[in-house]
Computed example of a mutant assay.
Amino acid sequence: MRVGYGAADSTGADGVVEHLDPTWLTGAPPWLDLFQRWLGEAVAARVPEPNAMVLGTVDADGAPATRTVLCKGVDADGVVFFTGYDSGKGRALAAHPVAAVTFPWIAMERQVHFRGRVVKVDAAETQAYWRSRPRGSQLSAYASEQSRPVASRAELEAAAAAVADEFGGVDGQTPVPVPPHWGGYRLEPVSVEFWQGRADRLHNRVIAERAGDGWGLRRLQP
């Protein structure tokens, strides 16, 4: 699938009508409008899990790791996701509070890469998102010691059942509180790169990079 955006251009052999260009990045910050448009177009195109992103971190020993998480918010301040603070990614972020995320909309031949420092969101933001989660997801998050070993599936299910009983069952009315070991993070970008696939691997790449209080825009070679 090929989707254009911006000033008209001649259609190439690969079907692209418009070339990704630094002039597409406008506003404050300049990356936000284009990212939201691309995300919206991924949703409209029924890309599976369009808000899924690959999160890369480095642990205390300097070992890198990636995993796929769900983006739960993007605004001028950055990209938000939620997880266990004691999970593998949580421990890595405690050691090195920097990360990279990639939105891989492969079916549309588009990617967006964010890099920057990571901070915890405040308790009010975590609470607001927690209330929006299905009760089953709340119970699972409360029960899980994320990334820790477990002897068997049966042991995991028993732990989840015990938590469910504690709060009145899966269909109960007792609110499930935010676990003390769980919450949100915000990646505050210092660079945001947009990638558009082209024939013969002559891809289009445009990057916005923090420069003092503003942003610099550049085209990169593929």
Rank of each mutant, 00 (worst) to 15 (best):
T126G: 06
G116W: 01
R148C: 08
V206K: 04
P180T: 13
R153K: 14
D171P: 03
H203T: 04
G212T: 09
L202V: 13
V150Y: 03
D122Y: 08
T126A: 15
D200M: 10
A100G: 15
E18V: 13
R91N: 05
V190F: 05
N204M: 08
V178F: 01
T174F: 03
A158L: 11
V178H: 02
A161P: 08
F103P: 05
R2P: 00
R37N: 10
L32M: 08
G216Y: 00
P149W: 07
G27F: 04
V43R: 15
A42P: 08
Q146H: 02
V118E: 02
G6I: 08
F103G: 07
A143Y: 09
R186E: 08
L202N: 07
A65T: 14
F114N: 04
F35V: 02
A161Q: 14
V121T: 15
R219T: 15
V112C: 08
P48G: 05
G56W: 00
G6P: 12
S10K: 12
A7K: 12
D122A: 12
P50L: 03
V206E: 04
K89E: 09
V17K: 14
D213M: 06
F167G: 07
C71G: 04
A151P: 05
F81Y: 12
Y185P: 03
D86T: 13
R67Q: 09
E188A: 12
D200F: 11
H113Q: 13
W195C: 04
V16M: 11
V79S: 00
D171I: 01
A199I: 05
P175K: 06
Y142T: 11
L220R: 06
A123W: 01
W195F: 11
D200L: 11
N51P: 00
L34C: 05
F35S: 04
D122H: 10
D122L: 08
E209T: 15
E166Q: 15
